[in-house]
Each structure stands twice: as C-alpha cells, then as structure tokens.
C-alpha cells in the first residue's frame, strides 16, 4: 500500500496527494502571489536604506558623501532599480486590494471598490509630491 493511503472509520481507503514544494510555479496566479509577497523583502531593504541615509546624515558630511558614493556603485544602482520595480508592484497591489478589506458604506450603499482604490492613488500622488517638494526645496 502506498504511503498516501489512509484509513478512517467511515471510508475504507483514502488517497491524499502531497503538495509539491513547487506548487507556486504551477499556475500564473500563484507566481503572481509569490512575487507580490516577496515585495516585502524590498520594503524591508528600502527601510534599511532610509535608515542608512539617516545615519550617514547624522554622522557628518563625510559619511553622507560616502553614502552617496556607495549609491553610485553599480551594485546599488541595480539593487535600487530592481527594488523600485518591486515597490511599485507592492504599491499597486496594495491599493487594489485595500477595498477588499475595507468596506465603506455611505447611506446604506457600499462605496465601489474603484473609488476607495482611487482615493489611495490620489493620496499617493499628493504625498509623493509633498515629499519631493520638501526635499528639493529644503
């Protein structure tokens, strides 16, 4: 008898398939899901990048110049480029899934998903502009 066969009081013989370690390659949605989940790695790295930049700023002008020089190295340019793609993927998937978790009702009717997602995108644009203005204008 194969190891996949099990017995229960009600059924003579069961067969249970084992889940492959490669289950997430078996269809496109699962690959998409795993890529979406892996954005967290780049979110973490981006937080560390900000921390590094902050520490360089606090340590003085030389440390800050060193930080900028490091960022010009091909390794970091590549990492930041790939990271940006993943973080944009995170942003888009996050906004699009927000209305699934947040149900807003106005006057007894559910606010449509695209409105909630749309508000997220508007906030994104506004905040990005605000951060850029503060940084560029000092």
């Amino acid at each position: 008898m194969s190891p996949g066969t099990q017995y229960t009081p009600y059924h003579p013989k069961w067969y249970r398939r084992r889940m492959s370690v490669w289950w997430w390659l078996q269809n496109r949605s699962y690959v998409y899901f795993v890529l979406r989940e892996l954005t967290s790695v780049f979110v973490g790295l981006c937080a560390l990048l900000l921390l590094w930049h902050l520490r360089a700023l606090v340590q003085g002008p030389e440390a800050h110049a060193h930080f900028l020089a490091q960022m010009r190295r091909p390794f970091f340019v590549g990492l930041n480029g790939v990271g940006l793609l993943f973080i944009l993927f995170h942003t888009i998937t996050w906004f699009n899934l927000t209305p699934k978790a947040m149900v807003v009702r106005l006057g007894g009717k559910r606010v449509p998903d695209w409105t909630i997602a749309g508000l997220n995108y508007v906030a994104w644009v506004l905040l990005s502009v605000a951060v850029a203005v503060v940084l560029l204008r000092g």
Binding site: V43, C46, A47, L49, L50, H53, L68, A69, M71, R72, F76, V77, N80, G81, G83, L84, I87, L88, H90, T91, W94, F95, T98, N120, A123, W124, L127, S128, V131, A132, L135
Partner: peptide, 21 residues
C-alpha cells in the same frame, strides 16, 4: 504596508537613484 505603498516609491527614487546619480 500602507506607509511603504504611499511613501517608499518617492523616497527610493530620490535617495536611491535621482540624488546619487
């Protein structure tokens, strides 16, 4: 996740790419 979605793209573009390059 919300903070990262809203603010990381602009920070990464500026601090990680636009300023150093």
């Amino acid at each position: 996740g919300t903070i990262a979605a809203l603010l990381f793209p602009v920070h990464l573009v500026l601090s990680g790419l636009a300023f150093p390059l």
